[in-house]
């Protein structure tokens, strides 16, 4: 691992430990300067990035995490059958303002179905969902209009809330920029690359400033940089009090997440990890 990698890992470790962004930047910059002046292997000079990050946290403490707020989404006893096949059995999830919930499970175990039921796009056979505040939803794919420009998508979504065109366009472009994408211009959605089109898809769901955000594996086609930006943006949204539910099968980000709902039928795995809400077997 060279110095740049070490510094990058340090940045991630500090972020994960919820060190305030400004303080983290200073710490990393100072370490970088020290290494530039004195040379040496960062692993020797500072130790492993995890260890150094830990020492930093002990010294300056973390940004106080926003207390999880009131319950924003409560899904109870969600059951769904397709013919004889039972896709969801008694699935339950409670998410408060300022929390991120991940919905995981093998392919075909009903993650997308669960999310669509929570969004009110599909009716379950049993169960209830209560949502407090505005709802935003990002489907796994599609969800955009082939022949419209990105700006026109923003105007269309904005008009639903009574937002005027100019502000809607500005808000859309600002949200797009956070994902590392310049959204202006006259490229129709069908001509955008897969990853960019997904960024548009995602931006549309956050535009109306929802209180509950439901995301169905929205990062298809994202490159690594965008993927990192995506999780950064989720953290930012979480800190402003949004309740977020993300369907994912990529488990490496689960430490940035407050709740995990595993929809894999328990009789298959026979195991419920601690702290995980799940469906009854």
């Amino acid at each position: 691992m060279n110095a740049d990698d070490w510094l990058r890992t340090l940045t991630a470790e500090l972020h994960q430990r919820r060190v305030a962004a400004d303080a983290a930047r200073h710490v990393v910059a100072e370490a970088a300067t020290h290494l530039r002046e004195g040379g040496g292997d960062p692993w020797v000079v500072f130790g492993p990035p995890q260890q150094y990050a830990g020492a930093v946290v002990e010294s300056i403490g973390t940004a106080p995490g926003p207390r999880p707020g009131p319950v924003r989404l409560h899904a109870a006893g969600i059951t769904k059958r397709y013919g004889r096949r039972s896709v969801l059995r008694d699935a339950t999830l409670t998410v408060r303002a300022g929390q991120i919930a991940a919905v995981i499970g093998a392919n075909g175990c009903g993650k997308s179905t669960f999310l669509r039921i929570c969004a009110g796009l599909m009716s379950p056979d049993a169960g209830e969902v209560t949502v407090s505040g505005r709802l935003g939803y990002c489907p796994q794919s599609g969800g955009t209009a082939d022949f419209l420009l990105a700006d026109e998508h923003f105007v269309l979504i904005g008009a639903g809330q009574g937002v005027a065109r100019g502000p809607a366009r500005r808000a859309g472009r600002a949200a797009a920029r956070q994902l590392g994408w310049e959204a202006g211009g006259d490229v129709q959605a069908r001509h955008l690359s897969g990853g960019t089109r997904q960024k548009l898809n995602l931006t549309m769901s956050t535009l109306s400033a929802p209180d509950v955000l439901l995301l169905d594996e929205p990062y298809q086609g994202f490159d690594q940089g965008t993927y990192v930006n995506f999780w950064d943006q989720l953290s930012r949204l979480r800190d402003t009090g949004t309740a977020i539910v993300v369907v994912t099968h990529l488990l490496n980000q689960l430490d940035r997440v407050d709740i995990v709902l595993d929809l894999t039928p328990a009789r298959e795995t026979g195991w419920h990890a601690p702290g995980i809400q799940g469906g009854r077997p």
């Binding site: 969004a119 009110g120 796009l121 709802l135 935003g136 939803y137 489907p139 599609g142 969800g143 955009t144 209009a145 082939d146 022949f147 269309l156 979504i157 639903g160 809330q161 009574g162 549309m204 769901s205 535009l207 109306s208």
Partner: peptide, 13 residues
């Protein structure tokens, strides 16, 4: 063409 978009527009208000 609009079929996929309409549920999202419902959610948008």
């Amino acid at each position: 063409a609009a079929r996929e978009l309409e549920p999202r527009l419902r959610l948008a208000g």
